[in-house]
Design a protein around this nucleic acid. Sequence first.
DNA 1: ACAACCATGTAAGTAGTTACATGATTTA
DNA 2: TAAATCATGTAACTACTTACATGGTTGT
Lengths: 181, 181
Amino acid sequence: MSLPHALLTSLLERPCSGLELSRRFERSIGFFWPASHQQIYKELGKLEHSGWVESTAEEGARGRKKSYRVLPEGKNELQRWVQQAEDATPLRDALMVRLRAEAVLGSTDAINDLCHRLAQHRHRLAIYQEIEQRDFANRELSRAEQLQYLVLQSGLATEATQAEFCDRALTLLASWRDAKD
Amino acid sequence: MSLPHALLTSLLERPCSGLELSRRFERSIGFFWPASHQQIYKELGKLEHSGWVESTAEEGARGRKKSYRVLPEGKNELQRWVQQAEDATPLRDALMVRLRAEAVLGSTDAINDLCHRLAQHRHRLAIYQEIEQRDFANRELSRAEQLQYLVLQSGLATEATQAEFCDRALTLLASWRDAKD
DNA sequence: ACAACCATGTAAGTAGTTACATGATTTA
DNA sequence: TAAATCATGTAACTACTTACATGGTTGT
């Protein structure tokens, strides 16, 4: 469970409100650990209860903006967590299940999902490439930026690999479908 | 939610008991949609309730082996589901969160997780390569086998990409750590 | 008869999703 | 002053995990 530590990281980069965190997640850490605003608010509550962050607002101030910042205990906790080794979260890919189903059914209907997924991966790839051009191209990078770039490169590689796979699979299935006619 | 359809697929390949399904999952479909035996038993109950599979045992036969097979309605449902397009399940990668945390903390402690993950990905890669040699190398493949091979190739590509990334990241972080001494 | 294992489950808890509620602030 | 938007939440639900329970079969 990495959400609390993802939030600590983001809040260390810059203290802010829950909604602003939510927005920043959507175009940075959230690519690798997505979270809805509901989840973020709930988790911020837990972080505050643990004494890892503090907020600028009394209890029960619904509707009024709160700003959170990380406390020393929170930073300690993050440092402790970063050192830990952890198994990769098991991947779950419905497309692979569809292809296996296709193998027993003898149809070519998984083409729909393949097309959809191909578009999705290409879209993400484009987003990542845009970020790469905007933030990391043609200049000296600080140590922190090099690490951020590294993470982005992982995303680039992942999406490229998946898009390429969809492309190959699509070619194969389409050839079978056309041969049938 | 693809577990029911993964089970239908596996049961169509061969009717069997819950535990046998669980074991087969561990070395085939489970690579792409893992499931514990508890989950499988529960889901088999739902599938039977929906009229998609039937079992050879009366109610409340705890401890006695049941065998499940897919009913025509179950096959219909699977055919319907295969045609659907679906977003990729959002990836969650704690390692990327660690690297982002490292960027703000200025340490090199994510090396631990990087090593662990590198070993894990290489291990899986070796398993996949073994399956490739055993089941798909140097022979003509049926249509169904070609599809199974395709799915395996996705696994091979994914693990190779991730292992390669860990390797690169590890080299970078280790060089920083050593420069510090 | 006892252990080891095969086989099927129950129970409690967690992380995340979806839908909805409500207060505060800005803008037309 | 009404609508839109900003901002913070609650409630119900689902998939999955972890720990435990229990019955049946096989081998010594």
